[in-house]
């Protein structure tokens, strides 16, 4: 390779490098900044409520049956008519997802007859121990509206373990 050729090659290479200096950067300063996700992105789950504050989940276990990763555990109980947790006769006293097992396929969302379990664009899934990723109703359920009587006291219906991941 002649000297001129070497200088040419060096110049072309540096040209590429310096060319990128003036382009828009592909990385963002995560976690301070977040890249927008696609509209139909399937991230972390929530359990939604009705407008009146009652939980949408009726504990039918269809999400558990649909889950290909077997990461959902639901156990149902009967509603106290005086202080219902959800509309109708039945609610989930236990709802747990093992987020490390979840493959975020969204089948649970599809199976849900009441629109209770939903996959949000949130995807900040971090933690220090495995048990932090076993999330329960307290983690999943969206906050109740600030109406008198809500949220219903779920001390007797809450599952065990489960803390907010991250």
């Amino acid at each position: 390779m002649s000297g001129a050729q070497r200088v040419w090659a060096l110049g072309r290479g540096l040209g590429t490098t310096f060319g990128y200096l003036f382009r828009r950067r592909a990385t963002v300063n995560y976690p301070e900044k977040e890249r927008p996700v696609p509209e139909r992105f399937r991230g972390l789950h929530i359990l939604d409520r009705h407008d009146d504050g009652l939980e949408r989940c009726v504990g039918c276990e269809l999400c558990q049956a649909a889950c290909p990763a077997h990461c959902i555990t639901v156990e149902a109980a009967e509603n106290d008519p005086e202080r219902p947790v959800s509309p109708g006769e039945r609610h989930a006293w236990r709802y747990e997802i093992d987020l490390l097992r979840c493959i975020f396929c969204g089948f649970c969302e599809e199976a849900c007859p009441t629109g209770a379990i939903q996959l949000t664009p949130r995807h900040d899934l971090v933690g220090f121990t495995r048990s932090e990723f076993l999330v329960d109703k307290r983690w999943l359920t969206v906050p109740a509206p600030a109406a008198p009587g809500f949220p219903p006291d779920r001390a007797e219906t809450g599952g065990e373990g489960g803390r907010r991941a991250g």
Partner: peptide
Amino acid sequence: LDCPVCDKG
């Protein structure tokens, strides 16, 4: 059509 909350479902 309350199959989701019905024990027979």
